[in-house]
Amino acid sequence: MRVDHLSWLLLACLATAACKRDTAPVLPAPVDAPVAQSATPAAAPAHIDETTTAKAKEMPSLRVTTVDGNTFDLADQRGKWTVVNFWATWCGPCLQEMPELSALDAMREYIVVVGLAYEDTTVEEMRAFLEKHPVVYPIALLDVYDPPADFDTPRGLPMTVLVGPDGKVVKTITGPVTAHDLETAIAAAGGPKAG
């Protein structure tokens, strides 16, 4: 009996050490997430159609309530180029790109920007933050444990997804992005040229 107790204690210590060694994620992970994952992706559950899932990521849906109480629906943006920007208030590069994204949204009537704040905060705290860092585009708070299903979970911030006028994903950019980068991507995908 004593050996079993010591074995259990040793396993608990090893598990704790492994957790401490591996707890430097870029973004918070769910509390009930497994410590180790298999290198081989698991097969999709029988009730999920992989073709449908692939099409959803190709033509994602997104409907969120913004911090000003309005609804942003990606489907309503058809005919325009939509910039979906995942960001956080604690992310320096995110803050640096916000004024440029705001100017892009204001200056180009064929471009719409939406900011998805990927952090655990309240609407009131976000409103206070936006008073100090105003933008013209809508901002919505995301649940970091339940991000939009049709978009890849950000592995780092900022992450920007460019959606074309047809509702299809044109490009995903991880890391800081400029208005020039986005306008170049739009022109390369057949949209208007910058300038």
Rank of each mutant, 00 (worst) to 15 (best):
G92I: 13
V83L: 05
Y110A: 15
V114S: 02
P138M: 04
C91L: 04
I139K: 03
M126I: 10
L142Y: 01
L62K: 06
G115C: 05
M126F: 04
F129D: 11
R108S: 09
G79R: 08
D143P: 06
T65G: 00
D143C: 06
V144G: 04
A106I: 05
T89W: 10
D105I: 01
A140E: 03
A106P: 06
D146Q: 13
M98Q: 13
A117M: 09
V136H: 12
A88Q: 06
F72M: 03
L95H: 09
Q96V: 14
Q77L: 06
S102N: 14
R63E: 14
P138S: 02
A106T: 11
D68Y: 01
H133L: 04
D120K: 07
A117L: 00
L116I: 04
Y145N: 15
F86T: 00
L141M: 13
T71P: 05
W81I: 11
V67Y: 05
A128S: 15
D146R: 15
A88G: 12
G79H: 02
V67S: 07
M59C: 10
I139G: 00
F72N: 08
E109S: 15
E100G: 12
D76I: 02
V113T: 09
V83C: 02
G79P: 09
V64F: 04
W87A: 02
V112I: 13
E124T: 11
M59I: 08
W81M: 10
W81S: 05
F72C: 02
V113Q: 04
V123R: 05
M107P: 03
L142V: 09
L62Y: 08
I139W: 01
T89M: 12
E131M: 11
V112Q: 11
T71S: 09
P138K: 02
F129S: 12
Y118R: 03
G92P: 08
I111E: 04
E100S: 12
